[in-house]
């Protein structure tokens, strides 16, 4: 189990983050967060962007953490999937910054 977790940690984080963003998007639009204005922007945008940024940071943290795995195939694989997971979080989450909200 630990092995599977290590070699897919970064990708698991992406899967979690992706689902989280999609779920927040649904709840946020339903709850009317895009109609609440806060600190010069809409609440919806603030929430989405900050969650996305946190997820990206978590992705970096996974990359950092993988370095402590003993060297070998497992670490190389874990490292690759941590990189991919982090990049995927950046790319698939990027729409939170510019696309219009809830239309």
């Amino acid at each position: 189990m630990m092995f599977l977790a290590r070699i897919s940690a970064g990708l698991l984080l992406w899967a979690f983050g992706f689902s989280l963003l999609y779920a927040l998007h649904g709840f946020g639009c339903e709850g009317g967060w895009h109609e609440i204005r806060i600190a010069g922007g809409m609440l919806f945008r603030w929430v989405m962007v900050s969650v996305w940024v946190l997820l990206c940071i978590a992705g970096l943290a996974v990359i950092w953490w993988i370095r402590s795995v003993p060297a070998g195939f497992e670490r190389r694989l874990g490292f690759a999937s941590a990189l991919v997971g982090c990049a995927a979080t950046v790319v698939t989450g990027a729409p939170v910054t510019i696309t219009s909200a809830c239309v």
């Binding site: 992706f18 998007h25 690759a80 729409p95 219009s100």
Partner: peptide, 26 residues
């Protein structure tokens, strides 16, 4: 491994024409 995970994040592309909000489409 990357394929296995990413392929679970694509399903909505079969539903692009069902009126899903833009950000989710993104």
């Amino acid at each position: 491994l990357a394929l296995a995970f990413l392929s679970f994040g694509l399903w909505v592309h079969h539903m692009f024409t069902t009126g899903i909000p833009h950000m989710a489409l993104g």
